[in-house]
Design a protein around this nucleic acid. Structure first.
Lengths: 376, 376
DNA sequence: GGGGGTCACTAAACCGGTATAGTTTTGACC
DNA sequence: GGTCAAAACTATACCGGTTTAGTGACCCCC
């Protein structure tokens, strides 16, 4: 196993200085065409690969992007969002010679230190901000650290922009965002349930401090109100199947239990269906259930789960592209992806006519059919 | 925002040479106690953090470990193994100031280039080898690249060790392994089904080229044979819920369908239950189903899924520790973790007495009960 | 034919650490 | 008090790139 070729080897072999090799390899002017070709030939012949660490030291860039996931490891395993998102990110990064540096943290205190460490170690050139929170402390943190970032979704515009030098009317968030608006899907879902005749509806959401939880809650409740429905019963969970199951138990124990339950992700919805079945209820005859994210499994459980498709893979790809551009050029535009849409499957159906589990269909709504449901 | 302090700043402020600062910070002999203290004080005061890239360049070490996942992004989202494994790895790395560099690749050709790139870029100091394959090409590859690695499970010992300098009787695999033996769990599962009276049993396994698939297949079939059962029907899949569902369809379409189906992971098992329910079969009355890995969701679907618990989180922790030791000292011992055990839940029950779905219980086996199943 | 400008290229500084050779200080011992 | 070795510390080379200042060579043009 012989030593790797360095830029000095290439320079010597090509009979030029190493500075010129650097110029030729980085496509910079000041190298005559035939010299450039000769250098590139020699480099290829020696199988020269520039040293990342040397380059990093010189240029103060790491050629890596960072993702810090602040969720309990257990949840991480159950929720398919992050694996898909990461796969999307990777799909872009791998073609660009960049790497993804990952960190999974349990608590907030540790989270901050990871952001600080990644920055002070120059371990990454930019970071993805997922699971955006209200008044997210990570935004001023990264801003003060001078670390570029891309947010998934719009952060809440804060009026008190701390040191906003220009008095322009620009939005208060300092980082470009990649938005995949889930409101249309949520609105469609609310209308869908209202049209099926549901009135007593529960919404089992994720942690309230996460923006998407409250945003979806607002969109859902707002649409129901428009449709003349009473406000939904809202239950906050941590996104685990366990809490989804527990929430379902509590809801079904109510004196006047809901006829439809909407869950913040698919694992919770699947767990909810499990609870219903265990109690002898049939879905959707006695209880309608819907999930969120449209994971693969949602299509294959029985009954297949009505869900809102959010496409984390595409989200990851676009977030990676935007962050790469931000890092390279210093600025990047906000991007809006096609919004999430409702996917109706077999787990939602017309409201039961009486309070007891009676199998009488109540309206013209088609009875739920086969598994591979199409978009609404 | 002022510039980060460098080692030179610390040296100047402490009135010593930077070499001595380096010695003091790395706990090396040759520094008097009070000088060392003074240097450390100054470093703390200046909030000095050594530059990773500079250190990497000097030491030819990247302070990062790599994981290449060669699975389709879709599968990655559904299968909870990797997220949990990664979380376990992270739990160890984060306390050691190391980072995890991740890559997700679809096809084998790309996989090899990633291993080569990570190596030639010195992007990582060592790598995790998961989803071990028969005659795994990654082993000679990493060996020839001189990249340390840890394997999850024992690779198959190859007689033709290429350049085995010493004629010792050591096993042929050059890398330490972290083994979580799943055989006991599989054996227990086979016995469990045999005791319940099942004879026509199907085994829906993962890709044959992966060692764990064939190893489990062998253990399962062998135990059944010992128990006097006929050989199971084996169906190979890619681990997706989609193929799990398709396999279930095919099996149930057989003239003489199996009375129990064992799946290679939980998502497939859950999809299989979905298919059964869709056909009007009841689990476990008409069909017993078992999964693998014991993911969170397995506890919360209905019926809760009998599975084999493999504890990917612990696996990740131990793999990280072993790899860190290997990288630091040049060698590490093989580690055996507590083996995977069977977790009996509600999805497995006594074999139906007749071929038709008749609700007669057939034996003294307790009827499947509540969700939170305990270990067998 | 000498001044001025551009182009191709070289030499050397620099990034921020580690490692090594060399120099001074300390201390033990006779 | 002189000798010698160990301990403490400095100076500097080095890792492998990028970048800047500087040097010829060449051309243009009055």
């Amino acid at each position: 196993m012989k030593r790797k070729a360095t830029i000095t080897d290439v320079a010597r072999a090509a009979g030029v200085s190493k500075g010129l090799v650097s110029f030729a390899l980085n496509d910079r002017p000041g190298v005559s065409p035939d010299t450039r070709d000769r250098i590139l030939d020699v480099a290829r012949e020696l199988d020269y690969r520039p040293s990342l660490s040397a380059r990093s030291l010189s240029t103060r860039t790491s050629y890596a992007l960072g993702l810090v996931i602040a969720r309990d490891p257990e949840i991480l395993g159950a929720d398919p969002f992050f694996p898909s998102f990461i796969a999307g990110v990777e799909r872009v990064l791998s073609t660009e010679g960049r790497a993804l540096v990952l960190s999974v943290v349990g608590d907030d205190a540790h989270e901050e230190t990871v952001y600080r460490t990644f920055t002070s170690d120059s371990r990454v050139d930019g970071m993805f901000l997922t699971d955006l929170r209200h008044d997210d402390p990570r935004i001023p943190l990264l801003q003060s650290l001078g670390m570029p970032a891309v947010t998934l979704g719009d952060p809440d515009a804060r009026a008190d922009a701390p040191a906003s030098a220009d008095g322009s009317g620009r939005p208060a968030h300092p980082f470009p965002s990649v938005v995949l608006d889930d409101t249309p899907g949520v609105v469609e879902l609310a209308r869908h349930l209202a049209e099926l005749g549901h009135r007593r509806i529960a919404h089992v959401i994720g942690p309230r401090r996460m923006m998407h939880a409250t945003r979806r809650d607002a969109a859902f409740a707002g649409t129901l109100a428009q449709a003349g429905c009473p406000a939904p019963i809202v239950v906050e969970t941590d996104f685990t199947a366990a809490e989804g199951a527990a929430a379902t138990e509590r809801l079904l124990d109510l004196a006047d239990p809901p006829t439809a339950i909407v869950f913040g992700n698919d694992p919770m919805a699947i767990a909810g269906i499990g609870i219903a079945h265990e109690r002898g209820l049939r879905v959707p005859r006695d209880l309608s259930v819907a999930g969120f994210d449209d994971s693969e499994l949602a299509r294959y459980v029985f009954p297949s789960v009505t869900s809102v498709r959010s496409d984390p893979l595409v989200w990851g790809e676009q977030a990676a592209r935007t962050l790469l551009q931000l890092v390279a050029t210093g600025s990047a535009d906000d991007v809006a992806l096609p919004p999430a849409r409702l996917v109706v499957r077999a787990s939602t159906g017309p409201v039961p006519t009486s309070t007891g589990p009676v199998p009488t269909p109540s309206g013209p709504v088609p009875s739920p059919s086969g598994r591979p449901g199409g978009a609404h």
